[in-house]
Design a protein around this nucleic acid. Structure first.
Length: 429
RNA sequence: GGACGGGUACCGAAGCGGUCAACCGGGCUGGACUGUAAAUCCAGUGUCUUUCGACUUCGGAGGUUCGAAUCCUCCCCCGUCCA
């Protein structure tokens, strides 16, 4: 069953072990356990930050353990105070239900629900929290929590000290999460909860509750917060969050996100987010050291993660697009190729007659399609040499763009700076 | 309820009757160098036109003044302290 050794050690060398309950290592070495991680349905899609816990579950499964992804249909209605400095806005029930569906679909890319012997499961805590009676809950669960205990938890303490305080609702969150663990323990024999390091307090509340209620031993393991060397928040780019949903973050952008990782972070990301083994990673590390310009490690990271989430064909497109976009010439490409490559790029249709004759002023065009937000900004851009039409720099601010410049008379590729593209389709009409 | 302090552009923070579209830092956007990296350097960062200039901004509404972000009145919000 445990044919690959102890997953605890695997987590350790991958840098995924932030903290764990003391007996966990032994337990994982001896038996196969059932583990769960909770996912918060605050948005319709998970983002790259969630990839770490998701991979955690997936790794457990590969090591022969049983993984459960819990979507917080019940707790999502309450809001977790962990890591938050202010009270959260409550989501509507409909919104939560919708978000759960989105998340469920994404999880299925990583977990194997058909796997022989230890199929993964998705549970929704609304199933047991939804019908819970307050009186019963207070007698059976609340009785096991002293307020003193809850007040001593970091997430609560911080909020107690803050000016705005913490609502009773959020204060209760910890109990509900502990109750989830208890339910999963009862129903499915789940004895391990994993999560981000901010979940440590809530997880321990769960193991404590299980011990008190039915005397079982349960464990916890938390992953470190993913950091990046630049000191900004992981998973954020200029354009905002990097989502797992291809509608929100296209495979191309997703690929680029990884490719653009800081040198100092790549190896660490390879360990955390891919399945590559020690030797492969060591090799990439060597390559990074000897020939950083080749960026083999980055490329591999982007490939691995993109394929895992979006599949081979999406990867192929992302790579092809990258080649064209950063390779230089658009010359030998047909309109159809371009449309394909620029699939995710914003695009605007401009009627042909507006571009006929001496065409449209470049300033006006940039602002019209939203590449710049004002003519002044467009002017600055051009002055500083940041505007490209079909990959040729346009440096005259009084320059004009005409239909004749269109590739096959149909398509203009505008670029702002190095990475920001916008298509203009020359429309009939 | 009382006493102070404060609300300035994306954020922080100067300015305290004209020379203020408003110092400075961060962020952000371009450029150079590179490896689609980091660091560094340069430029830019209200709108319209760019040469001058015009217009709209400094919590809100009024007022004083030739002229206000800067003074006065009222109102709203925030912080600290006393009740």
């Amino acid at each position: 069953m445990n044919n690959k050794g102890n997953i605890y050690e695997e987590f350790e060398w991958r840098g995924l072990l932030y903290d764990a309950t003391p007996e966990l290592k032994d337990v994982l070495g001896k038996e196969s356990v059932t583990a769960y991680i909770g996912f918060d349905p605050t948005a319709a899609s998970l983002h790259v930050g969630s990839l770490l816990p998701i991979m955690g579950l997936a790794r457990m499964q590969r090591y022969g353990h049983t993984s459960i992804a819990l979507v917080g249909g019940g707790t999502g209605l309450i809001g977790d105070p962990s890591g938050k400095t202010a009270e959260r806005q409550l989501l509507t029930k409909e919104k939560v239900a919708e978000n759960i569906e989105g998340i469920r679909a994404q999880l299925s890319h990583f977990l194997d629900f058909e796997r022989e012997g230890n199929p993964a499961r998705i549970e929704n805590n609304h199933d047991w929290l939804g019908g819970l009676q307050l009186i019963d809950f207070l007698r059976d669960t609340g009785k096991h929590f002293t307020v003193n205990y809850m007040l001593s938890k970091e997430s609560v303490k911080r909020r107690i000290e803050s000016e705005d305080g913490i609502s009773y609702t959020e204060f209760t969150y910890m109990m509900l999460q502990a109750y989830d663990f208890l339910e999963l323990n009862r129903r499915l024999g789940c004895t391990l909860q994993m999560g981000g390091s901010d979940q440590w307090g809530n997880i321990l509340a769960g193991t404590d509750l299980i011990r008190r209620v039915n005397g079982n031993k349960a464990h916890g393991l938390v992953f470190p917060l993913v950091t990046n060397a630049a000191g900004t928040k992981f998973g954020k780019t200029e354009a905002g969050n990097v989502w797992l949903d291809p509608e929100l973050t296209s495979p191309y952008k997703f690929y680029q996100f990884w490719l653009n990782a800081d040198d100092r972070d790549v190896i660490h990301y390879l360990k955390a987010f891919t399945w590559l083994d020690r030797e492969s990673i060591a090799e990439l590390e060597r390559s990074l050291e000897e020939n950083p310009g080749a960026r083999e490690a980055h490329r591999r990271l982007a490939r691995e993660v993109t394929t895992m989430l979006h599949g081979e064909s999406a990867l192929g497109k992302a790579e092809q697009a990258a080649k064209v976009l950063f390779g230089g010439s658009l010359e030998n490409l047909s309109v159809n190729d371009l449309k394909d490559i620029f699939e995710d790029v914003p695009s605007t249709v401009i009627p042909r007659e507006e571009l006929s004759g001496d065409g449209m002023g470049a300033l006006e065009l940039c602002t019209r399609i939203g590449l710049t937000s004002s003519n002044g900004e467009a002017r600055r851009l051009i002055r500083q040499g940041g505007l490209f039409v079909n990959n040729d720099r346009l440096s005259d601010e009084s320059g004009r763009v005409t239909a004749e410049q269109g590739i096959d008379g149909e398509l203009l590729v505008l670029r702002k700076g190095k990475k920001s593209y916008h298509l203009v389709q020359i429309g009939q009409g």
